[in-house]
């Protein structure tokens, strides 16, 4: 496997997997929380919150990347704040993870929100009459019943994180071994005359990873559905 991919390609694949893994893992709880708020709560400014969540989906990725650079760059307010804690994310893989998380967030929220909205509120009421507080209703009824949608959201977020290009390259550039993710590497290889073979290999890796993620989520969703039917 390592022979088949050259060191630079392998680095890019490994980095993308790492970036996508952390981006998905860290944004998932927040996405579930935001989805639940949008699906179930009434609060003022809900439309604005909804718009903000979806903004990265509408904006050109380069704009999102540039905004991230303004905020989290070394001289930006967010960057300086993080710097006080000894953390720099601009031009680091952590920055790539942040960019990927933000770009994937609306996709996650859309899938999870739909699945939470599909949970029968009457079941939540029934749980309340049996002594369950809001938090416990969420943990024992809403969350398990929304699981297939949460999984779909996570897969979508992961796939988006694997493929994020515009915001990432704008925010953290394209430094091999540090911030060169799989799409950035493909882009770089395509810029040099002899790079097409390498680019093609990475394209195949992308397809394999994407298919694997989809099949995995399908298998899992089916298993959840079967469990509900009482197998």
């Amino acid at each position: 496997m390592t022979d088949w991919l050259g060191p630079q390609e392998w680095q890019a694949v490994a980095l993308s997997l790492k970036v996508a893994f952390w981006a998905t893992l860290l944004s998932l709880p927040l996405a579930i929380f935001v989805s639940h708020a949008l699906a179930r709560w009434e609060f003022s400014g809900k439309q604005i919150a909804n718009g903000l969540v979806h903004l990265p989906l509408i904006l050109p990725p380069v704009v999102t990347g540039y905004l991230l650079l303004l905020i989290f760059g070394v001289t930006g307010p967010g960057g300086r704040l993080l710097d006080a804690f000894g953390v720099t994310i601009a031009f680091q893989w952590t920055g790539a993870a942040l960019a990927a998380a933000i770009m994937g967030f609306p996709l996650m929220v859309r899938a999870i929100r739909l699945s939470i909205e599909a949970v029968d509120r009457r079941l939540e009421e029934a749980a309340a009459t049996l002594g369950a507080s809001q938090l416990r209703i969420f943990a024992t009824i809403t969350l398990p019943l929304a699981l297939p949608g949460i999984l779909t959201g996570a897969i979508l977020g992961f796939a988006k994180a694997m493929g994020e290009f515009g915001a990432t390259i704008t925010f953290v550039s394209n430094i091999p071994g540090q911030t060169q993710t799989l799409p950035s590497a493909i882009y770089s290889f395509l810029q040099v005359p002899s790079g097409e073979i390498q680019a093609m290999r990475l394209v195949i890796v992308s397809i394999v990873v994407a298919m694997a993620a989809l099949i995995l989520s399908e298998v899992f969703a089916r298993r959840v559905a079967k469990r509900m039917e009482g197998a």
Partner: peptide, 13 residues
């Protein structure tokens, strides 16, 4: 309380 609903409302999972 113990509430018995018209539609049972058992937890499907």
């Amino acid at each position: 309380l113990g509430y018995i609903f018209q539609d049972a409302r058992l937890f499907p999972h």
